[in-house]
Structures are given as structure tokens and as C-alpha cells.
Amino acid sequence: MDASETTAPEAPESPFSSAGLAELVRLLDRRGAVVLSGAGLSTESGIPDYRGATGRHRAGTPMTYQEFTGSEAARRRYWARSHTGWPAFARARPNAGHRAVERLRTSGHVTAVITQNVDGLHRAAGTREAVELHGGLHRVICLDCRRTSSRAELDQRLDELNQGFRHLEAELRPDGDAQLAPEQVAGFRVAPCADCGGVLKPDVVFFGENVPVPRVEHCYELVDAARSLVVLGSSLTVLSGLRFVRRAARANLPVAIVNQGPTRADNLAALHLDLPLGPAMTEATRLLHTA
């Protein structure tokens, strides 16, 4: 028998190995990358998205800031749906994609994380300094006295005001709310601010509301100091995230996008990988010897 016949077979190639993934690894290996993440990164944690592979055909549109502030009925509808969906949203845990980003940050391959998500999963994965571009659902703010408080505290108050309401069956929707019929919403009681009796709003940026200017400027500074920008799980449909890709492109920084489906910035990207985020980023960390 020839020696060649006794040679052990090569290890099988990872199903996520590709020339594109190798290029992403080379880009990350330069270090100094800034990650911009979107809803597609959290779908593997059970949180639906609006526009990605799971949300492309989902009915319904998010409530706008103008609706919320201008109508008591709209606020009742928002809080009824949000209260129903909150337990499932609060139970969500970081997935392999969030954990891979944190390993890349710890290893120095990623220097900063900007997220469009309001689920707090980057922070739960250990990325404490992730910039929450659109705020976080785990906080509530009073529009009158500006006091912030925890969503868990409000959740308890809403439970006391609406006993048995959570027994309703409803489909979880993006950003932690649930689909309810108008007749289910009609009798819901909304809790006012415990300090001043004012209107409570989740501490997130609604559609039609502007991201605070200091937060945007901080993100620009992070991008300006980066060596590359890596977009994870965002279609970049809204300007709040797209502007950072445009900023990077104008500065001739390489942009890599990992997203299932097309994005609004594909023409600006040096690389676009249509792969599931968790497995793809886990493989990238393995190839970079950070796993």
C-alpha cells in the first residue's frame, strides 16, 4: 500500500467558507473596523425584522413619532401591543452573531460598534460601549419631565392596570410589539409618569423623529477614525444608518456588507456577502483565531 493511501483525509471545508468570506477576514485582519449592525443580526435571537429575509413581506408599519405624541388612542394602541410583546422580547438572548462581534472587539479587530437595534443584545453579549443609535427599549422616558426609568418597572405597573391582558395570543412584531385587533386594544389602560403624571414613551427614536445630533456626531467620529466599515444585517433602507456608509465611501474606507438580501448601499460596498449572520461571523472569528 502506498503512503499516499494511508494519508488522513483533509478536514471538510466549512459550509460558510468562500472567497467572499476570506476577503471579509482579510479586511478584519487589518484591525480598526467599525461595525454597523441592523435588525438582521437579531433575527437569530427570535426578534423579527421589517425588511430582511424574514421581514420582507411582513404586513404593518411602525408607529411614527407624530402619531404617538398627537393621539391618546395611538398611545393606547402602542402600549397595548408593546406590553403584549414585551415578555418575548425581554427573553431574547444574544446569538452567535452578537458573540462573534464581541470576540472581534475584544481581539482588537473591531474598535467600535454602532447598532440600529433597540434590543440591547450587543450590550448583553458584553459590548457595553455599543452606540445604540436609535436608543433602547429597556428604558422609558417621560416627555414632560424627561425622567428616565426602567421598562421592567413600567411593565409591572401596566400588569397591575391591565390584569389578564397578557393572556391574549398575538404574533410578535419587530421592535417588541405584537399584532392586536382594535377591539383588544380598546380597554387598555396606559400608565402615566410616576413622578409628574406626564406621557411616557419608550426611550427609542421613532420613525419621523430625529436621532440626537450629539449621538450622530459621535458615530461620525468613530467612522472617521476607522480603517473599514462592516455592515451586519441591515438593508440600510433608512438614512440613519446609510449616512455612515456614505461617509465611509467618501473617505475611501472599504465597506463590507453581510446581509441576506440586497441593500441600499450595495453600489458603495467593496464586498457584499449574502449569508446568515451567526454562522458566517462565527466562521470569520475562527479564521481570525479569536474563537
Rank of each mutant, 00 (worst) to 15 (best):
A3F: 14
T7C: 07
P9I: 03
A19W: 14
G20R: 13
L21K: 01
V25H: 11
R30Q: 14
A33Y: 12
A33G: 06
G38R: 04
A39C: 10
E44Q: 06
G46Q: 06
Y50C: 04
G52R: 09
G52V: 06
R56P: 01
H57L: 12
R58V: 03
T61N: 13
Q66Y: 11
G70Q: 12
G70R: 12
S82G: 00
P87T: 10
R91L: 09
A92P: 09
H98D: 11
A100M: 04
E102Y: 07
Q116K: 06
A125L: 10
G126C: 09
H134L: 09
G136P: 00
H138F: 11
R147L: 08
L154V: 02
Q156P: 00
G164N: 02
P174T: 04
A178W: 03
Q179F: 12
V190S: 02
D195Q: 11
V205P: 10
G208C: 07
V211P: 01
P212A: 04
V213P: 05
H218W: 08
C219R: 06
C219Q: 07
L222M: 09
A225C: 06
L229Y: 13
V231T: 05
L232K: 11
L232I: 15
L232Y: 13
S235V: 07
L236K: 08
T237S: 14
V238F: 15
L239E: 15
L239A: 15
L242H: 07
V245A: 12
A251P: 03
N252D: 14
P254K: 10
A256D: 08
A256Q: 11
N259M: 03
Q260R: 15
R264L: 06
D266A: 12
A269C: 10
H272I: 03
L275V: 09
P276Y: 06
